[in-house]
Design a binder for these strands. Structure first.
Lengths: 328, 328
DNA sequence: GTGAAAGCGCTAACAT
DNA sequence: ATGTTAGCGCTTTCAC
């Protein structure tokens, strides 16, 4: 493969000049630029990023840690990140944490001198793991106890959802949270719910806030299991909030299996607004998160374009899974 | 960060010796190995792959080209590839082709000297694009007109599905193929169907083999649209084969909207056995592809562990979306 | 068995 | 405005 040196010789200039036109940095004469561009085109020169990365001791690889690659929410996010990173010629690779030794993965990332790590997985890990990265100046997101630079404003969407349930005459709202107990109590969606349910006229029944072991188990399995638990619990409920759309998918199935009609017998609201939720049966009413903005924010931070915390908007998307009890 | 040289000095040997113990190549005395391992541990040495990649002019990056990152089938595949690649310390990154200039993506891959490209997307591209890679010895899958090294044996699964539909008394089987006309006619699943439908006693009605523009449009949208078209076509059908599970998802919704009950009014069979198809309503009967084997095969080929063509098995998974017409 | 040294292709500081 | 050159950290050949 043709090297920068060959291009330089072909164009009758030095490698530094070639670098300058490629990186668009420093002064170049119109004439020199012409010659270099011509040489690049004619020799079909393709810069070797491997060498560049080594020289500046920093790769153009951004790592995203996810629980599992099939999760549509994370992948929507990754999609947005890829898009944003690409405009600056960075590549993002997703690393699935599940079933793998986290320590080993991190060593891999260190070995490849990734320039940033976005942790989308909720695994727990001794923070000391990350020393090597902070030393190296790697940009970290959600990796340490530091307050995150990107925060999702779930409260707006939650309030819209709760107001909507109130308006449509619901009284007993259950919450399929799915996370482990201690995580459930920290989740912004759940907190917003427990803090405000009284104000919206909902019963304050903690027995209908259900925890499990997501993301250890798959979201739809968790949703299914918790919906069954809810049914068996014999507590009143006329609506169910689900932490994620995939949990809602499982819950829908469980209700269906038990002969409960949605939304006639029970209303369901999801969260994430995954692209295929309109195809759920019934089409799911859900809280939409601006994942594009979220993904962009992560990359902008990693690339040093932002250093203020970004708030990601959410809002309720109304479809067919909530019944209006105030009408016949 | 500590370098190989520092390790060498600390251990009182040369860098070459350190390399040897790390790569497990060449002769090393028991004693030297001890010292080196000790030095590595104490200095917390992490090899710099950037430098290694440059020196051997070949990265440890395997690129996977996909239509879009949210497609669960592709991501299941990518998941398997990641797993397999990781045992040899290779990293795989997925590149979404949609909405991006393919040429630009390929240049990116070339610039990063990826060691292999697995093309899972069905985009069309002048094969000359790939010259630069074959020159460089990059392993290519599904990138040129060459017969692929990995082939999915859809015929087995299709025969099982057709036999099952025959056994359960179906006569008019439609096929939601979704691809463009010319691709539909080349698809192994569709071909198997048209070649054998008569043998299974199904009507030979080409009007119920439906094409569209997948993957340009989303699979569920295509499935939805084609199911509607099928309903309006006024051709008889008592069962519908779908090219993919996601198309089936859309089709299910369309049938439901038109008051058709599945499987009572029409039977549906999907393909791929996505992990959440049990949660479709009804739970989807579908042709399962061994995606794990498929992903492994791709990586094994890229890593030069295989050079014979691998055949990936498929089989029918029976759930609740097909009615047994032979019983009451 | 082990070490010395010549690259790999590029960047960036410095010189001109 | 352009050229020179010393690394970046590792691999690998060749000599000992």
């Amino acid at each position: 493969m043709v090297t920068k040196k060959e291009v330089a010789e072909y164009a009758g200039v030095s490698t530094a000049t070639v670098s300058r036109v490629i990186n668009g940095v420093g002064y170049i004469s119109r004439e020199a630029e012409q010659k270099v561009r011509k040489a690049i085109a004619e020799l079909k020169y393709i810069p070797n990023k491997l060498a560049g990365n080594l020289a500046r001791n920093r790769s153009n690889l951004i790592a995203v840690l996810v629980e599992d690659l099939i999760n549509p929410y994370y992948m929507t996010l990754v999609d947005a990140m890829v898009e944003r990173a690409n405009v600056d010629n960075y590549v993002v690779a997703a690393f699935a944490i599940k079933n793998r030794d986290v320590q080993r993965v991190l060593e891999d990332l260190a070995a490849n001198r990734v320039c940033g790590i976005v942790n989308l997985a909720m695994f727990t890990c001794d923070f000391s793991c990350y020393d090597v990265f902070s030393e190296a100046g790697t940009k970290l997101i959600n990796c340490t106890a530091d307050s995150s630079m990107v925060s999702i404003d779930y409260r707006t969407g939650m309030h819209e959802a709760m107001a909507y349930l109130q308006r449509t005459g619901h009284k007993n709202v259950a919450f399929i949270a799915g996370l482990e107990e201690w995580l459930t109590q920290k989740d912004a969606r759940v907190c917003c719910f427990t803090e405000n349910r009284a104000a919206y006229g909902f019963a304050e029944n903690d027995k209908t806030i259900l925890s499990a072991d997501y993301p250890l188990s798959k979201a739809y399995d968790v949703g299914f299991a918790l919906a069954e638990r809810l049914i068996r619990a014999n507590e009143p409920f006329d609506a169910v909030l689900c932490l994620t759309d995939m949990m809602a998918m499982g819950a829908l199935k469980a209700f269906y299996n038990h002969g409960l009609r949605i939304p006639d017998d029970v209303s369901v609201i999801g969260c994430d607004n995954l692209e295929f939720t309109p195809y759920f049966q019934p089409a799911l009413t859900t809280i939409s998160v601006d994942t594009r903005a979220e993904g962009f924010a992560y990359i902008d931070y990693v690339l040093g374009k932002t250093d203020t915390v970004t708030s990601i908007p959410t809002h309720l998307v109304i479809r067919d899974s909530v019944k209006d009890n105030t009408r016949g």
